[in-house]
């Protein structure tokens, strides 16, 4: 069998793929390749690690819960009741994805800080948010909400309208229809959205630094611990980073296993 000679266009694709693939992979490889096993174990013993890891888990779980509960209802509203208000809501929910994180942090500070728009009122009632653990949760919820909301809106829009109407005619209230038909059928899309949203929250840095600060055990999450460790001990920073990379890989693996078909519930029931 004779191979066809590569065309210029084909070669351009291969070259571009190789270049970009190399560029994207090299930093990840560098994280692993430049650290000995001993240095890694040494890095794991760094006193910054345990509190940061614990804080990251607690705050990202909290922010995810907030985003999933409120985001599901917002997404349902937007997907099921199209109109001007829904378009506005959708745009607002996308906003944090395009705002630079540092700017988001400044905005959060000016809104919820001691002299902020809402913060001044909260302060008079004895509630201080800025530079506390709840501030970390708010920062993470702010930057990660768009990822879940977008996925949830798309998943709810794909639902077959007839299934929802039939559910009502079978005696289910709108809320029960949401619970028993909407949520289960949109579940694969919602889970994928929640995973992306959580990944974004785990990696959150800029908004947290400006709004919550960098206090060990209180507001210093894993990415901030990496930043802090770098000032004194590059090996420790690298070990912390590898834990984050491992989390990212695990997420990616789960999402790939769910596959693109999982994001389209109800399709197997049509056709036939």
């Amino acid at each position: 069998m004779k191979l066809r000679a590569p065309t210029t266009w084909g070669s351009a694709q291969l070259l571009a793929s190789a270049l970009l693939g190399f560029f994207l992979l090299l930093p990840v490889v560098a994280l692993f390749a430049t650290l000995s096993w001993g240095d890694f174990l040494g890095g794991l013993r760094n006193p910054l690690l345990a509190p940061a890891l614990r804080l990251s888990l607690v705050t990202t779980t909290s922010s995810l819960a907030i985003v999933v509960v409120l985001g599901s209802l917002l997404a349902w509203r937007v997907a099921r009741y199209p109109g001007r208000a829904s378009r506005w809501l959708e745009t607002v929910a996308q906003l944090p994805a395009v705002i630079p994180p540092a700017v988001a942090g400044l905005g959060l500070l000016l809104a919820f800080g001691r002299r902020g728009l809402l913060g001044a009122w909260l302060d008079r009632h004895g509630i201080a948010l800025a530079f506390t653990t709840p501030a970390v949760v708010l920062a993470e919820a702010f930057v990660s909400a768009p990822f879940f909301v977008q996925a949830a809106i798309a998943a709810f829009r794909r639902l077959d309208e007839n299934l929802l109407v039939v559910s009502r005619t079978l005696g289910a209230s709108p809320f029960r229809t949401f619970l028993r038909v909407g949520l289960p059928l949109a579940a694969p899309g919602l889970v994928a959205g929640a995973a992306m949203s959580w990944a974004r929250a785990v990696g959150e840095f800029g908004a947290t630094l400006l709004f919550a600060g960098n206090l060990t055990g209180r507001t210093q999450t894993m990415p901030l611990a990496v930043y802090t460790a770098m000032e004194s001990d590059l090996r420790a920073a690298q070990a912390l980073s590898l834990i984050l990379v491992a989390i990212a890989f695990a997420l990616l693996f789960v999402l790939r296993r769910m596959g693109p078909g999982a994001a389209l519930p109800g399709t197997e029931a049509r056709g036939a």
Binding site: V166, R168, T169, G266, E268
Partner: peptide, 16 residues
């Protein structure tokens, strides 16, 4: 949900 109507849509809309 309170109208007591039986409805059969075009594709039957069974819950998958």
């Amino acid at each position: 949900e309170d109208r007591e109507l039986g409805y059969l849509p075009q594709d039957y809309a069974l819950f998958p």
